[in-house]
Every structure is written in C-alpha cells, then in structure tokens.
Write a protein that binds this DNA or RNA. Structure first.
Lengths: 235, 235
DNA sequence: TAGTGGTCTAGACCACTAG
DNA sequence: TAGTGGTCTAGACCACTAG
C-alpha cells in the first residue's frame, strides 16, 4: 500500500501550483529534470504530467515544456433533467398528447425545416404535490425519430428520448434559461393568473453536423422553479 | 504526419462504442488481446485505453477488465459570471458600498459564523443600456479576506474576489437559481413595482474543509435575466 | 492457476524550439 | 546544436479476480 511514484510527483507539482510556487503560464521543470529529482524513469514522470494535464492544472508545448494553466473560476456543472426536478414532494407526470403536426413559423425556424414537413409534438404536464407545476413541450422532426413509443417518452428527459429515437453518435445540446410571458395554452394548463410570467428552459438538440434534431420548451410555474449548479474546476 | 497507433486504437474503440457494437457495462477486449489485434506494445494499448477513460467512455476494474461506461445525457456546462452577463448592450458597474458589518441571522447562518463576528459586505449595481438591471450583494467573513482593495472588487466575479483575498488551494462553489419576492432595498435599487419578483442567483463558496468563505446573492430584474448552458458529455 | 489491469524501467527515434 | 515533449518497445513485478 505504498503510494506509487507517479502519484507522489503528481501531488508534489499540484501542491506547488496550489501554493503559488508556480504561477500562470510559468514554465515547470522539464521531464528530464523531474526524472533526476524523483530518481525515476521518464515514463513515470510523464504519467504524473499527463494526469496534471487531464485535470486541467498544466498544459504542454512540444519542444518547449510544461506550463501552469490559468484557473477557470466561472464554470459550473449543471445537472438538468426536466422530468426529475424535485427530490422532495410527490410527483406525477401526465402525458397530455403525442401528435404529428405541421410546424408554425417559430417551430420551423427553431428546427430549421420547411413548414410543410411534419413534426412530432409531445406535451407533458408535471404535478408536484398534486399541483400543476411544469408544462413541457418537445418537438422532433418526424423523419428523424420514428416510431414513437409512448412508454419510452412518458418519463424520459429530452436527450434520452432523442438518443432512443436515433442512432446518434454524438449530439450537441444547448439550454437557455429565461423568463417569459406565458401563452394561453400554458396559462390554462398551469392555471396561471393573467399576468403571471413563467420560467422557461429551452433545449436545443443538434446532431454531429449541428443540424437541429429536437427543440424543447419547459415552462415552470414560478413557485416550482429552482436549479442548482456545482463548481467545475479548470475545464 | 501519420496517425499514432494509440490514436488509431482510441478511434477504433470509440467508434465501436458510438455505433453500439459494445453496450453499457459490456466487457471490452483485454489489453493483451488489443496488443495482438493492433500488433503493438502493451503501453501503447494502455495509452489509448487511458484516454478513453479520461474522456468518460470506459472504466476499468483491476483484475477484471475494461467496460463501457453509461452515457450521461443530463449534465451541462454553465458559464456564469455575474459581472459579465451581457455581450450586447452597454454595461456599467457601480460599486455602491463596501462595509464591515455585523451579520443578521440569515447571513450568520449562511456563512456559519457567530453574529458577533464581522463580515465584509460588497454591494454593486449593474446598469444595462443605462437601466438598473442587476443588484449584487457579496458577503465575506472579515478575517478571511483583508485588506479589501476597491479596484480588485469593482469588476470581478465572486470566485475571483475570493481567490484574490485568500491563499486558497481549492474552493468549492454552488449556485442556486430561483425566483423570489424582492425586499425593499432591492426594489428601490432596481426601481421595481411593488409586486414584481426578481430572479436570484445565490453563490456559496467553501474552502477545502467545506467551511463557507463567501455568500453572494445577485438579483436580476426579470427583463435582464438569461442564462445558457452547453452539453457536457460523459462527466 | 491463468488472466486481468497498475506500475515501472531503460532504452529508442521523432519533430519541434531556440539560441 | 542541445534540449524539449510525443510516441513506442519489450521487458519486469505486483495485487486482484475467478474458476
């Protein structure tokens, strides 16, 4: 149970960076210097350095050396699953409808398709403690995801639905979080007052060529909206 | 400019996983098998496998082998800097006050300190296109971050302020995003109507022992709130 | 006991950097 | 030209797994 040499080297350099011995973009000791310092082989030194690169502490420039990487303080990890918003409170998901529709102007624009193409529209309503809380709309171009199986879409998040529907290697996604005035459909479903705004989380899903393959809009009654995100260091 | 062997192996296994040849938690070929398949040395095979581990595609169990890792679809990368919310529109940051205060009950609770301890309170107001848009409050226990230099705090995000103030090795942070009724101070600063709610982004900053070293509350006029987040695969 | 992944060594050749 | 990091080899010993 002794600590491996590569871990010793890793910890040593990491501590030097944390303590400020080496600062931003400063040159670190070369591989050969570290081989002598730690009395080990070059591959062992490289193992430690590669780990430091992977964890975002340093970067390398071939021919020059290894350098301290500037810390990124403003990136966070956000876990978002619109179908799993609340740990506390009873939750019920009602699948309102699954339709094949012709898109309106906005929807055609968001999915970058012609208005005469067809789109699968999925609408769901989430109840929290028996109150209407979240109204969820998803739109998928018809050709990209047939057939639709109700069981698969009832409880799944949008990325999960899409990945079941397509043989997708890699998808890209984007979330937008904003406040909007609600339309009549949403007002009715969530039993809102006339002027009450809703929190909107928009999801855009793209395939590997950045073509849209899904657009979603989740409307939260304000009382039921809360998100949290954790620090993601050095990424 | 030939592709290194380790990259060939990496690409090959990655493609097999993407195409569904290997599925969740399925055992991959052993290192020795891959050595034969690709007619190379074990260290080269390991380099490819380590890269696959680092990118979240596979995991290893010593004595057993390498396995396909389940994809995580619901994690996003959120870049949040309360002092840089808008690319478009002119922006002005006004430093309202920097005070040493005694915390009230809530603040003492959030910073987990006694009410007789002192706290540095920083208040800033952001104007977007000359309109009051964002009201920002930051609280730091006095002992952890003296002295306060105005130039350093005027334009910096909270994590940046904290990291300047402390010789911190590693901080942990958490964001909460929610809607709240605004208090009178915020109503006045943002020129809000009586009933108008505000969007709140709360920041908790902890040291390496998870002791709070900063608490922040940023209040957004609803018209000026928008966040976006990008997909972060396999993390 | 045979097979697995984890660590480590002592070499090699390469392209690139910078004086 | 000396030094740098990137790739690769052919070995070694280890702890752990599972029949």
């Amino acid at each position: 149970m002794v600590k491996p040499i590569n871990m010793t080297i890793f910890d040593s350099i990491k501590e030097d960076i944390d303590k400020g011995k080496y600062v931003n973009d400063q040159l670190l000791p070369s591989e050969n210097t570290l081989v002598e310092t730690f009395n080990t082989s070059r591959m062992t030194v490289r193992k430690a350095l590669l780990k430091l690169i992977n964890e975002g502490y340093i970067y390398s420039i071939p021919g020059k050396g290894y350098f301290v990487k500037k810390k990124e303080f403003n990136n966070y990890l956000l876990h978002y699953n619109e179908m799993e918003m609340y740990g506390e409170g009873s939750q019920e998901i009602r699948l309102l409808s699954v339709d094949i529709i012709k898109p309106n102007v906005d929807l055609a624009f968001n999915l970058r398709i012609q208005q005469n193409k067809r789109v699968v529209a999925i609408k769901r309503l989430l109840f929290i403690d028996s109150n209407e809380a979240i109204y969820d709309e998803k739109y998928i171009p018809y050709y990209s995801g047939i057939p639709i199986v109700e069981d698969e879409i009832h409880f799944s998040s949008f990325p999960e639905i899409i990945s079941n529907k397509t043989s997708l290697f890699n998808m890209t996604k984007k979330l937008n979080i904003k406040i909007e005035k609600s339309n009549n459909e949403i007002k009715k479903a969530l039993k809102l007052d006339v002027l009450q705004p809703v929190m909107i989380v928009e999801q855009f899903i793209y395939d590997e060529e950045m073509e849209p393959i899904g657009w979603g809009k989740t409307s939260f009654k304000l009382d039921y909206f809360e998100l949290s995100a954790k620090l993601l260091l050095n990424k």
